Simulated scan of single mutants.
Amino acid sequence: MSEPLPAQTISVHIRRHVQAVYDFASLPANFPLWASGLGGGLQQVDGQWFADTALGRVRIRFSEANSFGVLDHYVYPAPGIEIYVPLRVIANGSGCDVVFTLFRQPGMDDAQFAADAEWVRRDLQSLKQLLESR
């Protein structure tokens, strides 16, 4: 069994119904509108998703549509390397919380982890602004 990775949970409250947020955020084609961490050029090729990121061109596997608010995805920056990205939409009052768990990857220093956390915060704020302005 491998050692657990240090993790940080980052969330944002969105004043929109949980289903509306899930319906929007669950579509991989919408990720470029708010998830800059996935980089640019998100495209589907032969049933698989790819994006151009700071790590280079990566393959991304998104969760299947579900009724639990699960938006987990997996990023594959190189053969044999899988980065798990847990992401949830959770009902909270008349709105919802979007909760992202950021795992500190092996070899990542404190500054890189802090920068990644800030990037996630910006992306979640972008999602909030986008959906609350609709």
Rank of each mutant, 00 (worst) to 15 (best):
M1V: 00
T9V: 05
S11H: 04
H13V: 02
H13G: 04
I14V: 14
I14Y: 08
R15T: 14
H17A: 15
V18G: 04
V18Y: 10
Q19S: 12
V21F: 12
D23L: 12
D23C: 06
F24V: 12
N30H: 15
N30T: 15
W34R: 11
A35H: 13
A35L: 13
G37Q: 14
L38T: 06
G39E: 11
G39S: 13
G40V: 10
G41V: 05
G41P: 03
L42W: 09
Q48C: 04
D52T: 14
D52H: 13
T53Q: 12
V58D: 07
V58P: 08
I60M: 08
I60P: 01
F62K: 03
F62C: 08
S63G: 12
S63Y: 07
E64A: 15
F68R: 15
G69L: 08
V70G: 08
L71A: 09
L71W: 03
L71P: 04
Y74S: 08
Y74E: 11
V75L: 11
Y76N: 06
Y76L: 14
A78S: 11
G80K: 04
I81D: 04
I81A: 10
I83C: 03
P86E: 10
L87D: 04
L87W: 07
V89C: 05
I90L: 14
G95W: 09
V99F: 02
V99G: 03
F100I: 05
F100D: 12
T101Q: 12
L102N: 01
L102M: 02
R104C: 00
G107V: 00
M108A: 04
A111I: 03
F113W: 02
A114D: 05
A114W: 01
D116P: 00
A117G: 13
A117V: 02
E118T: 12
E118P: 02
V120H: 06
D123C: 15
D123S: 14
L124Y: 06
Q125L: 14
Q125I: 06
Q125C: 06
L131P: 04
E132N: 09
R134W: 13
R134G: 14
